[in-house]
């Protein structure tokens, strides 16, 4: 009842209504085109890069091949956002959420492994859907590395945080209070997978190929870091999810930002 009242009282501010009606008619070809683009990248471009890596470079250039694959994996999602129907409001809200996660990483920089980025990405994904989660995660990696130093690891962080946002957008029911156990589970698993992935990247970079003993050594030496990271994810999620979700939902109801209809 509350929502319908707000919608009636806010048409002067919310101009999205006529646009969305127009979009509905055109929706199918756009969705189809997007699907074609992603299929092209996932089924043709990525195997092609792997094939080229194996054939042309004698199977030893995993470091560069893996960077290219990480970038390629993000391309369809970025393209989907670029061609999607998000307007100025959605854009600005995403910019604020990204800035907040980067700011969090900057504030907690002295404590290694203790960063709220994952939590904010997951909360954005719960409130505004998988695409918003992906964009916030991927962009947080790029922007925060402007301060922490860009490197070949940037595409991997982009991939890891972006896909974490995407997956949590798919796992949780949009805009609803999430199940606490599932939330903690996602936070911890997300933190662990993030560390596992970054160690894979380190091994590929060092050895130009796979080296299990180095991977295990890196995992063990990174264990305290991973533990702090996973625990901080869970803690941030437990503390921040409900208040943040409330605010994001309120914004959705008040201004029609990321309204699914």
């Amino acid at each position: 009842m509350d929502k319908s009242l707000l919608k009636i009282s806010a048409p002067t501010v919310c101009e999205a209504a006529p646009e969305t009606q127009n979009e509905k008619g055109k929706k199918t070809p756009r969705v189809r085109r997007r699907l074609v683009v992603s299929l092209c990248v996932y089924l043709i471009a990525i195997p092609l890069v792997i094939f080229a890596g194996v054939k042309l470079f004698n199977d030893r250039k995993y470091n560069i091949v893996s960077v290219i694959i990480a970038v390629l994996a993000c391309v369809p999602l970025f393209a989907g956002f670029e061609k999607g129907r998000s307007g100025a409001r959605e854009l600005v809200v995403l910019a604020v959420m990204t800035a907040l996660s980067v700011l969090g990483r900057l504030i907690f920089a002295p404590v290694p492994g203790f960063k709220p980025v994952t939590a904010i990405v997951i909360i954005t994904a719960i409130a505004y859907g998988a695409q918003a989660g992906f964009i916030t995660g991927a962009l947080s990696a790029v922007v925060s590395n402007i301060f922490f130093g860009q490197g070949p690891w940037t595409p991997f962080q982009m991939f890891a945080w972006g896909f974490l946002g995407l997956l949590s957008g798919l796992v949780f029911r949009r805009g609803k209070k999430p199940n606490v156990i599932l939330l903690v589970f996602v936070g911890v698993v997300g933190g662990v997978i993030f560390s596992l992935m970054m160690d894979v990247w380190s091994v590929l970079n060092f050895d130009g190929g796979w080296n299990l003993s180095r991977y295990l050594a890196l995992l063990v030496s990174g264990l305290p870091f991973t533990a702090v990271y996973a625990a901080s994810n869970a803690a941030f999620l437990l503390i921040l999810t409900n208040p943040f979700l409330q605010k994001l939902n309120r914004l959705r109801d008040k201004y029609g930002v990321f309204n699914p209809q």
């Binding site: 670029e82 600005v92 910019a95 800035a99 980067v102 962009l139 922007v143």
Partner: peptide
């Protein structure tokens, strides 16, 4: 869109 998003984030 992405470029604008990036520059706005940096501004925020």
């Amino acid at each position: 869109k992405l470029a604008l998003l990036l520059s706005m984030t940096l501004g925020f």
